[in-house]
Design a protein around this nucleic acid. Sequence first.
DNA 1: CAGTGGTCTAGACCACGTG
DNA 2: ACGTGGTCTAGACCACTGA
Lengths: 244, 244
Amino acid sequence: MSSHASVPAFRPLYRQIQDLIVQALADKEWLPGEMIPSEMDLAARFEVSQGTVRRAIDELAAENLLVRRQGKGTFVATHADPRAFFRFLRLVPDEGGVPRSRSEPLECQTLRAGQEVAKALSIPYGDPVIQLRRILRLDSKPMVVDEIYLPADLFPDLTLDQLKASDRSLYTLFESLFGVRMVRAEEKIRAVAADPVAAQLLDLEVGTPLLSVERTAFTYGDRAAEWRRGLYSTVNHHYFNELG
Amino acid sequence: MSSHASVPAFRPLYRQIQDLIVQALADKEWLPGEMIPSEMDLAARFEVSQGTVRRAIDELAAENLLVRRQGKGTFVATHADPRAFFRFLRLVPDEGGVPRSRSEPLECQTLRAGQEVAKALSIPYGDPVIQLRRILRLDSKPMVVDEIYLPADLFPDLTLDQLKASDRSLYTLFESLFGVRMVRAEEKIRAVAADPVAAQLLDLEVGTPLLSVERTAFTYGDRAAEWRRGLYSTVNHHYFNELG
DNA sequence: CAGTGGTCTAGACCACGTG
DNA sequence: ACGTGGTCTAGACCACTGA
């Protein structure tokens, strides 16, 4: 009998299947948007019953890794799906529906991770990272200025031109160019006063209260793959959140 | 064949069972913290298989209406459970663990709903509402000033003395005194400058950037049961959010 | 029509908590 | 030892999609 009971010491079969599917996703066996094999096929492959595969897929669908479509099949979730888009952009207009958003890249350079970035990305101090700066426009008004850091090894040779050429969201771009899908993220939100640079970019008075939103985003297997700090104007918009 | 296909026109059995259980909860048949009947008993009561009841309870547990405890039974979720507490208070210290929180009620009066409050609570303009003002202290420092509105019919004869006598959270109090459990909430977050009143209460300079957090909270059946506006100091704390 | 996921059931057995 | 929820399986049938 084990003395320290902190480890579960029992892993249900459907969780093991779940892990195997996540591993296959991390190995890029099926890419974002593609259909994965049917429940029957996976049951044969893993040598379990169809019901057990079903349970595993159910949980992965609940975590937004997979999307079920009755009659068609089960697909790898993708940010290209518009429903997925506003799960990660929570700034919405006070009145009116969903805004048209447009990303305007300003800068893209490779540098070495400082203490803060290294810690946020769980990489060694001094490792190469890509720094990206951009403005996000909602209905063509500048609403967010972002500073984004990416571990360079996951995004080889990302250039400003690639960013400028895309009219899709950043995460959609990361998927299609590098096969890196952001699965979940954590945000820390504070209220700060606009500094001169942010004020100019957002077309506001210096000192205007802004939301500071720090985000760490994770890909399959809870690997940190992005850290960013955004300054959000909340004059005619607000950050919307749902508490479950 | 129905022409407008917008209505599902097919409601799975387990969803119907789900609805019946929620109805029983809304009818206060089982109170927060109490155990509900076993899956077998409910299966007999609703004349379906145990597996179907199981599926219904699974979904309600995922929505935090019920809590399963293996070997013991299934219980009505309650805010008295410390795990539930920080689902609704997302302000955490920049460094260090969970803070000790303490609510300091300032005022409690009944008045008539203005346009804004009536709309937020989905009640007629002019209906009686209870207005509550309070300060929330984290580790004994004032961090949040709240203005809270409640539909008076759900909280009969709530007094300032009752609030002052309690050392538990507001939502725990609402459960034990009125059987009203807050199930989910929506928040709208903005950055604002501290006005003189808030600045004094939070012990900050006038003009300090603060988070303005407007919350509508819902009880069983998505009935709005609270609206509040809080001003959060984010000098040494931040609002933490997880994006799924 | 065939193939996919979705629902419902029944039964066997496991893990956990309490007496 | 008993009752609770938790897992796994097998099979029948329903609902949706697309060729």
